[in-house]
């Protein structure tokens, strides 16, 4: 299977802009890629992630089209895992505490005096907690569960705010060591909780310079609409249909099809330069050229 950068054409503007952002050559830190279906948003995101890998830049991707329901915890945990859990011990510790199963032992009396009397002098009963979090070699390695244990929405909010604080403490420390990237794909399917976290916490901190070295890429058929106070930080871009030369480059140089001007022209007209459609056409042509079929055994 060919790597993504071998297949990639015609997104030089976006990728060059992204490289400038991670290298700190522009004040812009947030890239919004808004384009219709099939124009290659996810490919562009994947290419940027590959660029991060090449440069050793920690990065994390959340694709709102995947099967995960991105509630508050899922967002933070995914981000932590993508960026490297070792840098987020403080956050994971807090996460373990707020998600740990709590066992309340009812004594049947108003206080613990009755039990203490039974236990005798010098012994004290004060309740019981069960903590299944684990720490190995200084790294917190296990979440208790995926649920914040809170009796009501207000306490839950307080615990979420605590987690947010811990997460950003860790993130700030990690970002002080060098650039790191967040990628959010298929933003048009963002969940309410994820959007609240993104718009209420991550993006304002990036905008206001509270966390340095962090680049955020948001791609989707729709992206957040932000007012002009964000302009200094945001690079907005769309994705165009491929022109005929790019169609040729893609089919011939990237996919290895025969350089037949008539075929190229027909495929360009048939696909209207839409990358996803073009890729499907190329796949089908290559499949039809394949002499040895998997179906021979039938």
């Amino acid at each position: 299977m060919q790597s993504i950068d071998k297949l990639f054409v015609n997104r030089e503007k976006q990728t060059a802009g992204f490289v400038k952002m991670v290298q700190g050559e522009t004040p812009k830190r947030i890239m919004m890629i808004e384009a219709g279906g099939g124009l290659g948003k996810s490919w562009t995101v994947e290419f940027m992630r590959a660029e991060c890998q090449r440069r050793g830049i920690p990065n994390t991707e959340i694709d709102f089209a995947d099967s995960v329901v991105y509630d508050y915890l899922a967002m933070l945990r995914r981000a932590r895992d993508g960026l490297g859990p070792a840098a987020f011990n403080q956050f994971t510790q807090a996460l373990n505490e707020v998600t740990q199963p709590t066992v309340r032992i009812e004594t049947g009396t108003a206080n613990t005096n009755a039990i203490n009397n039974l236990l005798g002098q010098g012994n004290t009963f004060s309740g019981s907690n069960v903590n299944v979090g684990e720490v190995v070699a200084g790294n917190v390695i296990k979440d208790n569960s995926f649920v914040i244990n809170a009796d009501n929405a207000v306490v839950r909010q307080a615990l979420q705010d605590r987690l947010t604080l811990a997460f950003f403490e860790c993130l700030t420390a990690l970002a002080a060591q060098g650039p790191l990237c967040f990628f959010f794909d298929t933003y048009d399917k963002v969940t309410v909780e994820a959007e609240a976290w993104l718009m209420g916490h991550l993006l304002p901190r990036v905008r206001d310079g509270l966390i340095q070295n962090v680049v955020v890429v948001i791609a989707g058929r729709s992206v957040p609409k932000l007012d002009n106070q964000w302009d200094r930080m945001i690079a907005r871009t769309g994705l165009d249909l491929f022109s005929e030369p790019y169609v040729k480059e893609y089919l011939v140089q990237r996919r290895g099809l025969i350089d037949d001007p008539n075929v190229i022209k027909a495929l360009f007209q048939g696909s209207t330069g839409q990358p996803q459609l073009l890729a499907m056409l190329a796949d089908n042509i290559l499949r039809s050229q394949d002499s040895g079929g998997d179906d021979d055994w039938l």
Binding site: A94, N152, V154, V155, Q157, A158, L159, D161, R162, L165, A166
Partner: peptide, 17 residues
């Protein structure tokens, strides 16, 4: 009550946070 519930929860880990 709600103001207290939020606030007391935040006081539990105030020093470390």
């Amino acid at each position: 009550i709600l103001l207290s519930q939020y606030s007391i929860e935040r006081y539990k880990h105030f020093t470390e946070e």
